[in-house]
């Protein structure tokens, strides 16, 4: 109960701050519209207002404040505008409509899931190699780290162009970009997890004359499970970012990335923000789902009480 109150307090503060921020952000546009509609605003010309500060304009034209929350193409849409847009484009639109966020969300989600599966598989394989082979430890890990220092926004168009030239398009390039972002946390987490058994545990297996593969399946892999789930949660969020970024440079017509891009081309800020929120909600749902799976798996393993 206390937790819920705390969460709601934080949300309420953010929403309040957001509404307040809308006023100075939108005031110039609002005054221009009102002036065109015949209202008296201070100062009366747009060129005179241009050089004035937003806060001064708000104070001089306090009657215009409610209009700052209802603009058609605001600089900063107000929370309820975003909420209404989200409702309209998810619940009220048919899901096969080009304006449905469910449709766009699904396009991005499918690329995210595919990329996440590829990235996780690759990450786990690399981690197994790194833990068991000193050569791989020394050679792969630095490259894995370097790979994450390259901005994905710079790399994404190249991946898409190169893959297109060999005839691969559609969901695969997006999934690869998404995998590129998600394999890294899995590698780091799994290397740590597979190395988590202490010296005594390894000595114990030595006294049984256990083989390396027995040590892996019976000790290292089960011991790494809590680490795996932590990395998966980071990985799936990174996957979603990758899929969205993969939609930007192609001029894709479908997907949350395409919605963001189209919104910015046409100045549809409400659309941009609702796509952003859709992405955030999607990520939260996926992380939450993984959290549930984690709890049930660890509970079944006896590692959570």
């Amino acid at each position: 109960m206390k937790q819920i109150i705390a969460v709601f307090t934080v949300v309420a503060v953010i929403v309040l701050f957001w509404y307040v921020a809308c006023v100075p952000m939108n005031i110039k546009g609002v005054l221009t519209e009102l002036e065109r509609g015949g209202a008296e605003v201070q100062p009366p010309t747009a060129s005179a207002r241009r050089d004035l500060g937003e806060f001064g304009l708000v104070l001089d034209n306090s009657f215009a404040i409610p209009a700052a929350w209802e603009q058609g193409k605001p600089r900063l849409p107000s929370p309820h505008q975003v909420a209404i847009e989200l409702w309209d484009t998810t619940v009220l639109k048919k899901i096969n409509s080009k304006r449905s966020l469910v449709f766009h969300g699904w396009v991005t989600l499918s690329a995210t899931m595919l990329g996440f599966v590829i990235g996780t598989g690759l990450g786990v394989l690399l981690a197994v190699g790194i833990v068991h082979s000193r050569v791989m430890d020394l050679s792969v890990m630095p490259w894995a780290i370097v790979s994450q220092t390259i901005p994905i926004i710079a790399l994404a168009p190249m991946i898409i162009v190169v893959l297109y030239s060999v005839g691969v398009q559609g969901i695969i390039p997006k999934a690869i970009i998404s995998a590129y972002l998600s394999f890294f946390p899995v590698v780091v987490g799994m290397v740590k997890g597979l190395r988590s058994p202490d010296a005594m545990q390894l000595d114990l297996l030595r006294t049984y004359n256990a083989s390396q593969s027995q040590g892996f399946w019976k000790l290292r892999l089960p011991a790494s499970m809590p680490y795996l789930f932590t990395s998966l949660k980071i990985g799936i969020a990174a996957s979603l970012v990758g899929a969205i970024v993969g939609e930007l440079p192609t001029g894709a017509v479908a997907g949350l990335g395409a919605r963001l891009l189209a919104g910015s081309y046409y100045g549809q800020t409400v659309q941009i923000w609702s796509a952003l929120f859709a992405a955030a909600i999607l990520a939260a749902c996926m992380v939450g789902l993984l959290g549930l799976i984690e709890r049930s798996v660890l509970k079944r393993m006896g590692m959570a009480q």
Binding site: Q201, D203, L204, T207, Y208, N209, A210, L219, G302, M303
Partner: peptide, 30 residues
Amino acid sequence: RNRAYGYVFQAAGLYPWRTIAKNIKLPLEI
């Protein structure tokens, strides 16, 4: 290599993900 001895460490070192019976089975499985 001939598994001539059993070794008991200072800490019990049981696997938290195995029940007591499954922990005892560990060397037997191996």
